[in-house]
Amino acid sequence: MSDYEFDVFISYRRDGNPYKWVRNHFHPRLKDHLADHLRHDPKVFIDEGIEVGSVWPDQLGEALNRTRILVPVFSPQYFRSRWCLAEWHSMAAREKLLDHSGLIYPVLFSDSDNFPSFARERSWRDLKKWNHPDPVFQQTVRWIDFLQEIEDVAIELAKRIDRVPPWKPDWPIERPDPPMPGMTPLPRF
């Protein structure tokens, strides 16, 4: 391969309400709306469909390496995930290397008071008003407003996608340090 494979990499914590919201609402609608604004079919990476037996950290790193824009879904859970932070710092390192901001497009799911300083220093798209994770949200009046907001997100992302610098095979990819294994207690006789 010699180019980008994905336009967008959605980075989110795989549990709780942000997880359900991304799966039920954000990912499918973003992909649909991006299709209306790109010259090509949009490719949005979400960590489903990784083959059984694959080394998933390698798969995530390869996908991130071949992605134009990172879309982190901000929540308190996001900043407690070593993997989410590794994805963030990988793309931030690429921005610094290129001296090109705009490769990270945060969306706010919840909170914001307890985020680390590096996250609070960035502007984000506030989607808290539409952070209902359950499918029944699609039957409410607010769903139409959510769709318009995702349309606006797609328009902004399409403009950024067109301005991303050419791909390089050696983009920095960070991985979280593995946790220290616990001590195995010695048996007592």
Rank of each mutant, 00 (worst) to 15 (best):
V55F: 15
G53C: 11
P76F: 06
L85V: 07
K43Y: 10
R68I: 01
P76A: 07
F79D: 00
W56P: 07
I50P: 02
R80S: 12
W83M: 00
R80C: 07
G61M: 00
V71S: 02
D41Y: 06
G61A: 12
A86H: 05
A92E: 13
P72I: 01
V52M: 14
L38Y: 03
S54N: 15
A92K: 14
P57D: 08
V55D: 15
S75I: 05
P72V: 04
E51Y: 09
L38R: 02
R66L: 09
S81P: 02
K43G: 05
I50W: 02
H89T: 10
E48N: 15
Q59N: 12
L64Y: 08
S75E: 06
V55S: 14
W88P: 02
L70Y: 05
L70S: 08
S54Y: 10
C84F: 01
H40R: 13
R80H: 12
P57Y: 05
L60N: 04
L38H: 05
H40Y: 10
W83N: 06
S81M: 00
V73W: 02
P42V: 03
E62Y: 13
R66F: 10
F79V: 04
L38K: 03
S90T: 03
L60H: 06
S75V: 07
S90Y: 02
E87M: 03
P72Y: 05
A92T: 08
W56R: 09
V52K: 14
E62H: 13
S54M: 10
T67R: 01
E87K: 02
H40N: 08
P76W: 05
F45N: 05
V52E: 13
S81W: 04
A86Y: 04
S54G: 10
S54C: 09
N65C: 09
D58Q: 15
I46R: 09
R66W: 08
A63S: 14
I46W: 06
L85R: 13
R66Q: 15
R82W: 03
G49S: 07
P72R: 05
D58L: 14
P57G: 08
V52C: 08
S75F: 06
R68P: 04
V44N: 10
R66D: 09
L60V: 08
L60I: 14
D41G: 09
H89Y: 13
L64K: 08
E48V: 15
G53Y: 09
R39I: 07
S81Y: 02
Q59S: 14
G53Q: 11
G53S: 11
F74L: 11
P76D: 14
S81T: 03
F74N: 01
S75Y: 02
E51G: 15
D41M: 12
Q59C: 11
T67Y: 04
I46F: 08
V55N: 15
H40D: 11
L70E: 00
L70R: 04
V71K: 03
P57V: 02
R82S: 12
I69Y: 04
V52N: 13
E51T: 12
E48M: 13
E87R: 01
R82I: 00
Q77S: 13
R39W: 07
E62G: 12
V55A: 14
P57W: 03
P42L: 07
H89M: 13
I50K: 00
R66N: 12
R68N: 07
S54A: 15
